[in-house]
Nucleic acid binder design. Structure first.
Length: 317
DNA sequence: TGCAGTGTTGCTTC
DNA sequence: CGAAGCAACACTGC
């Protein structure tokens, strides 16, 4: 699910709600999501800590915590990676009877109106001292949760090996060219490699390459300076716009309040319409390029689907 | 009905 | 070495 714009949307929403809140309890029913510490220890380690900040690093959500009773500033980090179908929600859940196990979001925030909605995929809940909760919904249970001291978490390869942030002001075109022109892989895979540059996944790599008119199979180190510049500006433009529109909702992406993102209608090659998209067996293939009318192609690359216009994005000149 | 396909990542295999 | 395959898991459309 979430690439940079979606994660950015979630943390911005949550920041307004949970900073300065104290955690009064933790619940989970899928211990395999918790990689650190031992799942059984998480509850007592995290209880009574106060949330002081929430940040994004790549696609990772970092919640900074302190023990308000401790004299020394001993910061902790709760790291959540939502992977494919995970998303954090701010709400209130109550449990159905033991035999049906349904989880219900009691109230939608936006209108203040009561809205009950069953969510069977909440697997982790942080209980806050204002009566609200942060829940992790994750159909496929791929999400990753890590908790530990600030230094400890920051030094894990999960964070330490990450590439630069594409939207940082300091990430100039020269740096981008320097970085990408050394890589020998196919450009789509290079853009999606979090250890090269963070935040870009299957949706935005397709969109960036379409806009830049670059074939996804082109080898990164063989790209001309002009082509790299085009990719760089498409990347900045698309990611910024997607953040502004609160991400892309295909299938089930929602912001922290359960609302859809607005970038889906901007997609040029990645599947998004009812016709081209469903959870199973879907493709943009069969739709037309909005620039030239050619039929969009879908091809396999490293186990993922790449969508592109074979006329606008040529492999050979 | 079974299988291919889905926003991610990391490990194994060749 | 790098690239490809597959696994984690649940679900759906064809």
């Amino acid at each position: 699910m979430p690439e940079l714009p979606e994660v950015e949307t979630i943390i911005n929403d949550l920041k307004k709600k949970i900073v300065n809140r104290k955690i009064v309890g933790v619940w989970f029913d899928a211990p395999s999501l918790i990689k650190k510490p031992q799942p059984k220890d998480l509850r007592f380690k995290i209880k009574d800590l106060r949330i002081i900040d929430i940040k994004r690093r790549g696609k990772n959500i970092l919640t900074y915590l302190i023990n308000p009773k401790s004299k020394i500033l001993n910061q902790k980090i709760l790291l959540i990676h939502q992977k494919m179908t995970g998303h954090l929600l701010y709400g209130k859940w109550s449990f159905g009877k033991a035999q049906d196990k349904q989880k219900i979001i009691v109230k939608s925030l936006t209108k203040g109106a009561l809205e009950e909605k069953v969510n069977n995929y909440i697997h982790f809940i942080l209980y806050l001292d204002n009566g609200w909760q942060v829940g992790l919904s994750d159909l496929r249970k791929f999400a990753k949760i890590l908790f530990g001291g600030k230094e400890e978490i920051e030094n894990l390869p999960d964070l330490k090996n990450l590439g630069p942030e594409p939207l940082n002001e300091s990430f100039k075109v020269e740096k981008f060219i320097n970085l990408i022109s050394k890589k020998r892989g196919k450009i789509k895979q290079v853009l999606m490699d979090q250890n090269v540059i963070v935040g870009i996944g299957n949706i935005y790599s397709d969109e960036i390459l379409w806009q830049a008119k670059i074939h996804p199979f082109k080898i990164a180190e063989k790209l001309k300076i002009k082509e790299l510049k085009n990719i760089y500006s498409a990347m900045k433009q698309i990611l910024k716009k997607a953040v502004k529109l609160r991400g892309t909702s295909v299938s089930d992406f929602r912001d922290a309040f359960g609302k859809s993102g607005g970038y889906a209608k901007m997609l040029k090659v990645y599947p998004h319409t009812k016709r081209s998209y469903g959870v199973g067996g879907y493709q943009r293939e069969g739709e037309f390029c909005q620039r030239c009318g050619t039929i969009i192609k879908r091809v396999k690359i490293g186990g993922r689907s790449a969508h592109f216009c074979p006329a606008c994005q040529r492999l050979k000149p």
